[in-house]
Amino acid sequence: MRRVVTRADPLSFEQLVLPHLNSAHNLARWLVKDSTLAEDVTQEAALRALRYFPSYHGGNVRAWFMRIVRNVAYDFLASRSGNPETSFNEGGSGEEGPQALSVPAPDDDPEAALLHSEGVQLLDRALRALPAELRECLVLRELEGLSYKEMAEVMGVPIGTIMSRLWRARQALLGRSAEGMHS
């Protein structure tokens, strides 16, 4: 007896999309700011991507996949509360905010260990405190190394908007107001 389970056409999907699972998870993690939920978002995005895959006709597959991740993450943020930036984001002054209490913590937390130095913690906290649309710009640009064009694809906005959001995000982290820069 010898029957290997047949797979419709997941090979090309696996080859094209799954190499970007780390990027997907990183983006999801920075958007929802919770490790368990980030995994859920990533997994749901992978399933959606599998479903939409027949409609993918070439182009930048990472940007295509990360747009799906972003959409799933924003769906979540939106349904979590009418205003995603209030209840969910502004855990602000404390450690992880209330969401850290509502979800079981993993048994050991290597991420926390990484953030030992105070300066790093401040930077981390400052980024987490930014509105999601500004935060994701820095994550996509600095951590994922996406070009403006790719970012525009992921976020579904013109390149000019990417530039001004990036600007505002950076000025905020530098402690400057970004007055004078339109939206």
Binding site: N26, E111, L114, V120, L138, L143
Partner: peptide
């Protein structure tokens, strides 16, 4: 940002 922030690999 590149050096100090955690990268959350899956």
């Amino acid at each position: 940002l590149r050096e100090e922030l955690p990268y959350y690999a899956a």
